[in-house]
């Protein structure tokens, strides 16, 4: 549907250009300072309405979006739908049309099914922001990860980034792979063979057209046979949350074995560069995908990620509802 002037959806990182990504990150930098003030509120989005439509449980992401909207003076409404539209007897499209009829400026949506933000965007006049759709994308997570990396490494181009865990089902991995390779990083993924498709490398071949010219020479995506290969000499180690239900579907035998063979321990982290940083999108399973001693170490930037999440979401809401880049 034709959007009113200057409203922009954020459906995924895949659709963005390198310049778009840099623009969002730079805008987020400008908003960071607001979060450190005594009075954490600016009138930027006064009179705008943001609906947080969450079909999946979420504490961190929903709170982060809500705070972002409120600190910009937008009116934020949270709708939590514990189950899908099917059980309410309403179709997804009808749900979207009904919300859109109340003239919100932006709908932030999280859903367990891939593609729901894309489906909503087709029928709604409000800008649609993807807060995580199934195994597809979680663009604001990738943006806040990038902000964290930029803060500590001062650049992304040329960095070696290891992503470890359930790559197949991870929207965080997909968004990060798109973002990091678009900005010129070398990404290496590893995990159990059942959860890391050996031909995942073509993810960026497909996305290659929108990649910036200067990053083509350095960016790459490699599937590593062992976790150690991915971590060795990495600048950034990103650990993904492992879902218990994957054990029930025979993706791996036990969480215990997962921890032993794929978990990030101090020993494995020693393979990375001396100044390597550790990221985790949360919530963590301590002692499974990440050892507590790693999670609590100074190399772990997990709380920084959460902190920058608010600034990133302020930037995203601002840009989605008509703000211009870098202002």
């Amino acid at each position: 549907m034709e959007k009113p002037y200057r409203r922009r959806d954020l459906l995924g990182i895949r659709e963005l250009t390198e310049a778009d990504i840099r623009g969002i990150l730079d805008t987020a930098e400008n908003f960071r300072e607001i979060n450190t003030r005594e009075i954490k509120k600016v009138p930027t989005l006064r009179g705008k309405t943001v609906i947080n439509l969450f079909f999946e449980n979420s504490t961190r992401t929903r709170t982060s979006f809500e705070l972002a909207a409120k600190r910009l003076s937008a009116d934020a409404v949270n709708i939590s739908v514990s189950s899908s539209s099917v059980s309410k007897g309403e179709t997804l499209v009808d749900t979207a049309l009904n919300l859109d009829a109340m003239d919100p400026d932006c709908i932030v949506v999280r859903h367990g099914s891939a593609g729901v933000p894309h489906q909503l965007a087709k029928v709604s006049r409000a800008a649609v922001v993807n807060a995580g759709d199934g195994s597809n994308e979680h663009p604001t997570q990738a943006l806040l990860d990038a902000m964290t990396i930029r803060e500590h490494k001062k650049k992304i181009q040329g960095l070696e980034v290891a992503i470890v865990g359930d790559i197949l089902h991870s929207r965080v991995a997909r968004s990060n792979i798109h973002l990091l390779t678009k900005l010129g990083a070398k990404v290496r993924v590893a995990g159990p063979g059942t959860l890391v498709p050996r031909d995942f490398g073509y993810l960026i071949e497909e996305a290659g057209t929108s990649r910036g010219r200067e990053s083509v020479s350095t960016a790459s995506l490699t599937v590593c046979p062992h976790v150690e290969d991915a971590i060795r000499d990495a600048d950034v180690v990103m650990i993904l949350r492992i879902q218990r239900e994957r054990q029930d579907s025979a993706y791996f035998p036990t969480l215990r074995e997962y921890a032993v063979h794929y978990g990030l321990t101090n020993g494995r982290l020693d393979l990375a560069k001396k100044d390597a940083i550790v990221l985790h999108p949360g919530p963590m399973n301590r002692g499974i995908e990440i050892a507590s001693e790693v999670a609590d170490s100074s190399r772990s930037l997990i709380l920084d990620q959460v902190k920058y999440g608010v600034a990133v979401r302020m930037a995203v809401l601002y840009l989605a509802t008509g703000g211009s880049l870098g202002s």
Binding site: G115, G134, S135, N136, R174, D199, Y202, L203, E206
Partner: peptide, 10 residues
Amino acid sequence: GKMSLLLGLK
């Protein structure tokens, strides 16, 4: 295949 990986669909 490629597209299912890209779209995050099973």
